[in-house]
Design a protein around this nucleic acid. Structure first.
Lengths: 382, 382
DNA sequence: CTGAAAGCGCTAACAA
DNA sequence: TTGTTAGCGCTTTCAG
């Protein structure tokens, strides 16, 4: 058996199918042909009856339906896909499926999609644009009817716009261009409110710890923080704004440094529970106490802030709503008579004027702060 | 437009595809036909060359590969599926995608699957057998090449065995019959070790809080607990073993009751972080302290036990390994020249003797306890 | 209103 | 070794 290394078709996608192909098919399916025969009509009529896609006499309709029922006929999605170019599948890509935030969003998306009969394929980008592009390509090959994309590595609004041009795309907390749709959480407002709450308590040295200043959520939050400070005439001390790419590890050491400094902050705004973890550990290590010595507020709620002792005040938003909204916007875009996909040759041409209003939809969700036990007025100055 | 209500084809699956079908197809794909033409060979030869599925002359091979490369040809998975009856997709069903445990397992599965070129469709059973059956049916229609199934509602080993008969199935922490495969975590050992650790510390009144006695994990854990107690000659006080279906809500009130009783337990084994939450809240409410007044140990590690203060001792196992193992076992079963699927008419007939050894594989993973700060000797008796 | 027929893109017989 | 052909199951013209 000659076995020169497969050169091109060795891409994983092909491997999978080739490998699986060795398994024989299961049981002889009931096809639409069987239904047609049983109903005594032609194949075309059966199809039209089943799909209500053309004129069918009442008699034929009844017969076909009865036959379908009796034979327990179920259409073959694969065959339908081949013919129609659509799949009844939507793809969802996030940086980390295991992130509880995404996990909850995904659950909501799945639930909504399931109700509508769509299946959901998921993928992990590991926060890499390259991986994202690869997965998107794979999904497109599989003819997904739409895509939901979470934040990834850096913003690429034009890239996203380009993609949205021939496939319904819903962005989660991502900037996108004129085309496409997305659901945005008001991180700006969340960070602003959190900071304001702290200011009201009398804090002025408020540290902000964020992980990803490059992405929309991080950016918006930093802006909200600055906005609140500016609103009270407090000048921003940039040494108090720490942002990095990796979460927990950095937040611990950064918080430690901050807390050990002579003029240490009296409050922390932590953007995410992983960062909260790091700060909490730093607190533990330095022997400082919450909220007596320093106040803490966490942007993004979860088990940890809720159950920690003292319970941590948090900025919260409805994750299920994010997922549901994403699913709904996407289905709107798919259902909407797909202006999105008329294969114009010159892809760089300016967008046509006939954009379906539904294809350009943004949903904005608000945040609110849940006051718990982790914030108090700052300790009297030494 | 006459519009008698769709009677049978109104099942969600059909709805999705029908709806999506209104969108036009994207761009004219490069087909294998184009490749063949460009390479100056016939369609069949191109196919054989691309798949190494038959004799091809070196010259033809080169030409085809070059053509494929230049045209950036990518095979259409849908068409391949229709022809071969396989899809390069595997389905994964768990009771709750948002459960951090599953979320991490899923991530690992996805990573492994992705490497092999498989896509993953996921679904939520919400712990309902009916939903599980429905989703399985949906997935099968879509011709998934295999299934990974998490625990759900109640054990149905025969049902699972039946299913595994014509589709590769990997069970996660579920009992399964003679056919099929699965990965099992040693929950028995975990609970036993945890209990023993507590016994060693001097505890005898150890409460066990579990959520799902009906499923394998819960059952095994209860057994492990009993085993450890029996090994030390401690008689089991059944009032100390609390099990229920719903997690957090019940665990709070149950723990509260237990803690308020005159002869209260000096230690708790909490099966899962959600239950830990409830117990923690009950502790807070009663003013009891960890580990001074009562010791705590959590089966199943996570953010909460790790970061709580005091940090909670936990029984841990490698979730990534669970996922990876599941993916690998499944791929073994799929790749294995599929003895699983020879459509024998009488499905109830005894299994044939020709079961591929790979098709019957079980992977067993061990647990270990991570000692932290939540356990101490019991307080001196009043 | 209905039936016949043409494919969607691919693989797998079967002849040559 | 190769080219031709027959479908996989379905939707959708296009004539009747």
């Amino acid at each position: 058996m000659r076995r020169t290394r497969p050169p091109d078709s060795d891409k994983p996608a092909d491997k999978a199918i080739a490998k699986a192909a060795t398994r024989p098919v299961v049981s002889p399916r009931v096809t639409i042909r069987d239904v047609a025969r049983a109903a005594g009509v032609s194949l075309g009529t059966a199809s039209r009856a089943l799909n209500r896609s053309g004129p069918v006499s009442e008699a034929a309709l009844q017969a076909v339906e009865r036959a379908a029922r009796e034979l327990a006929y179920a259409p073959d999605p694969i065959a339908q896909s081949l013919r129609t170019g659509t799949s009844g599948v939507v793809g969802l890509l996030v940086s980390d499926l295991a992130n509880p935030l995404y996990a909850r969003i995904i659950t909501a998306v799945e639930m909504r999609l399931q109700r509508e009969g769509y299946a959901m394929v998921v993928g992990n980008t590991h926060n890499s644009n390259a991986r994202e592009d690869m997965m998107v390509e794979l999904f497109r090959r599989r003819r997904v009817d739409g895509l939901i994309l979470g934040p990834c590595e850096v913003e690429r609004p034009d890239h996203l716009r380009q993609l949205a041009r021939d496939l319904p795309v819903v962005a989660l907390d991502r900037d996108f261009g004129d085309e496409g749709a997305g659901v945005h959480v008001d991180h700006f407002g969340g960070a602003r409110d959190a900071t304001q709450y702290l200011l009201d308590l009398g804090h002025t040295r408020i540290a902000l710890m964020t992980s990803d200043g490059a992405l929309r959520p991080g950016r918006e939050r930093i802006n909200g923080y600055r906005h609140a400070l500016a609103g009270r005439g407090v000048t921003v001390d940039d040494t108090l704004v720490r942002s990095s790419r990796s979460a927990m590890d950095f937040s611990f050491s950064d918080a430690l440094a901050l807390l050990s400094a002579p003029d240490r902050p009296t409050a922390f705004v932590c953007l995410g529970t992983r960062i909260l973890s790091g700060v909490l550990q730093a607190m533990k290590q330095t022997g400082l106490r919450v909220p007596h010595d320093v106040s803490l507020i966490c942007v993004g709620d979860g088990d940890l802030p809720q159950l920690y002792s003292p319970a941590i005040t948090a900025v919260s938003w409805d994750l299920e709503a994010v997922g549901t909204a994403a699913a709904e916007v996407l289905m709107g875009a798919i259902g909407g008579s797909g202006t999105a996909a008329t294969a114009t040759e010159a892809a760089d041409t300016a967008a046509s004027a006939t954009i379906d209003p539904r294809a350009r939809r943004e949903i904005r969700l608000t945040t609110h702060v849940i006051v718990r036990e982790s914030c108090a007025p700052p300790p009297a100055r030494a």
